[in-house]
Structure formats: C-alpha cells, structure tokens
Computed example of a mutant assay.
Amino acid sequence: MKSNQQSKPLTQRTLFVMKRDRLESRINMYFQHTRDVASVIEYLIVVMLRDALSCSDFSFLCRDLVRDLFLNAEPSDLLRKYCAYFKDYFAAGSEWNQVKARLFSSQQEYDRFSKEACFYKNILNTPATRENANPDLNLRFVSVFKDAAGKKHTLTIQNANERRSGIEAIRMLKVLTTLNIFKTASGVKRFAEFVKLNRPGVKETLEEEEMYDELREESVQASAVEETEVKTVEIIVPQDFDVTSLNEAEVLALVRVGHPEVTSLENLQVLFVAEEPEESAEIQEPVLDPLLESPSPQLEPSDYSLVKDSSTIAVANPPEADSQKIKKPKLLTPKAAYVQSLIANRQTNTKKSSNKKNKKKGNNKKKKR
C-alpha cells in the first residue's frame, strides 16, 4: 500500500503546499519507484517557481538526483529542452560542459533546444529578498488560468513574497503554460493560458490597474516591433526607358537623389512613373465678328458711324486667342535633373554596349566568309 502511494504522481497541492524536507523526500521516492524522468524534471521546475514567488527557501531541491539524471540518464529531447533550468546545479566550466557534451552535438543545437528554458530561467532568477516589509499581512498569490478547453482554474501560492511586483509574478507564473504535468480529470492541459493575478492578505497589495496597464503597453510595443513600415518612393523616367534593365545598385542611386538618408532597398517600394508627353497647342488666328469685317451695303449712311466705332473698339481690344498657348518647357529641379542625367547615362551606356555586340557579330560573320 505504501509503495502504491509513493508511486502516485504528485498533485498541484503537494508541490505548492508541502514543506521543503517532505517535498524533497516525496520527489526522490517517486523517482525510485517509477523512474519517470519527465515528471520529476517538471516537478522541480514548478518548485523553482514556488521558490521565486514565496518567502520560503526551495532552492536546489533534489540536487543529487538532478545531477545524476543529467550526467548519467539516457539523453532525451526532454532533458535537452529543460537542461538550461538546472545549469546552476553544476560547477561552471568543465562540469557544465560535460553535461552539454552528453546531450548536444553542438552549441547551435543547445541554443535551439534551450531558447525557451533560458528565457524563463532568467525570469525566475530575478533577485529579491525573502523578507517582507509587513510580515503580519499573511500574503498569498492567487492566479487564474484557462485550461486547453477554456475552463478557468485557480492556483494559490501561500507565504507570497511581498517584494515581488505584480508584473514580475505574472512573468514567472507563465512558466506553467510550458509544462505538461498538470491535467484535468478529462486529460486536458490545466494551465494553458494565464488570465489574472491578485495578492490578497489583510489587504490587497498589488496595484491591479497599473500592473495590467504595463502588460498591455508591453504587448503594444512588441506588436509595433513586429510590424515593419514599407515606404514608397516614386521616380519619374522617360516613357521609352526600360526599368527592368536597372540593377539594385542603380535603383538605389536613383532613390538616394531625393532621399539621401536611404541606405538600402529593404522595406522600400520603388515605383517608376513614365513621364507624360507635353501637349503641343496650335495658335489659332483671332476670329473677328463678321459684322465688323465689312459694313453691309444695306446699312444707311447714318449707321456707318456705328460700324466704324465698333471696328475701332475691335482693333483696340482684339479678341483673345484661344486659352491654349504654347507651353514653355518645364525647368527641372536640381534633383530631377540629376535623376535624368543618371538615366541618360544609363541609356547611352546600354546603346554603346549594344553597338559593340552588333559590331562584334559583324566581324565574326566576315571572318567566317
């Protein structure tokens, strides 16, 4: 009966409530009866979380067992995944290098497997004194998680460390979402998503609004880093210019004429816009009113004076020409002129290269003859 009890998996309550000596004994006995390396390693990571958030000391629990597993157990992906959490269990230098050499074929493989573990290990190792400023508050961390099915579950850690800020505690608690030992009765992962945290005692000691504002700000900053702004630059080129013949260096040279701060075409969209042809406007002769060109023979002599006066007015104020006039050529800005000169040089070089190729082909034909 006692053997069955010792081989029974440790519960959430056992790991977060049992005192150090009894908990260490339970984990050692469980491994002796089950040889369940995976569960033992995750149990000890949970204990690291408890050590970081409570005032009690649970550091280096089951040290001899951990050293034996990483130095002698059959290498596995699980040991590789969680190896970095236990780096401090080994002497720096040759001993730690021995562990890495057993589990990994290269430093690159270690980095790939240990990325997540190194991240959370640094968070759990955030320094803080275990002495509370107000020991009579009897504080505890009360956190809420969602399981893989969306149902909420509560986790309570007694003797909470008052020196830990809310944001520190939340970052540490999220390590539970990376573990698989806690399951519901139906086999669903129990801690799949963090929801919220409080630290009640005689009074609430976490500034909840400020705490979650900081988390939201971090989330916004992270998403802003991920989104990369793409800038668009337009370059006007002649209609017959083949933009596909430009290489990357030539495109960058054209862009830098108007945007000297640009050093790369990365995150830059370059649009080549064909230059619009100038419309040629014809000068139209002014058309005089037919009545003013010559007086009608049917007009009375008295009316001639009116016609004369009207003609005088017409000459003094001749009709305006058509609104369309010959457009003067536009004066290019220095930047636009420089762009045009680069394009013109590119076209000239292309023509010269083409002529050389044609001449070479002609010479080859003559030789064959």
Rank of each mutant, 00 (worst) to 15 (best):
L173G: 06
L292Y: 08
Q324N: 12
Y30M: 01
Y43F: 11
V237D: 10
I236V: 08
F241Y: 15
K351V: 08
F241Q: 13
E193T: 10
K351T: 12
T14E: 07
Y212E: 00
G362S: 09
K335E: 14
K174N: 14
F31Q: 03
K151A: 08
F182G: 08
N267R: 11
L15K: 01
K359E: 05
N28G: 15
L69R: 07
V230S: 06
P295E: 01
P286R: 06
F113W: 15
L215A: 04
V339L: 09
A222N: 09
V17K: 09
A336C: 01
I41C: 12
K357W: 01
N138A: 11
C62E: 08
R216L: 11
Q221Y: 06
V255C: 13
V195E: 10
E248Q: 11
S143V: 04
M172A: 08
L246R: 02
A38Y: 12
P127A: 03
E227I: 06
R190Y: 07
E261A: 12
D147A: 04
Q98G: 11
A101Y: 00
V273H: 13
K368I: 04
F104P: 10
S59D: 07
E234T: 06
C83I: 02
E320D: 05
S310G: 15
Y212N: 03
L103G: 05
V233C: 09
L139A: 11
R26P: 04
L78R: 13
C83A: 14
E250Q: 13
I41F: 07
Q284R: 15
E109F: 06
Q107A: 15
L197A: 07
E131R: 11
R171G: 12
P260Q: 05
R22I: 00
F119C: 10
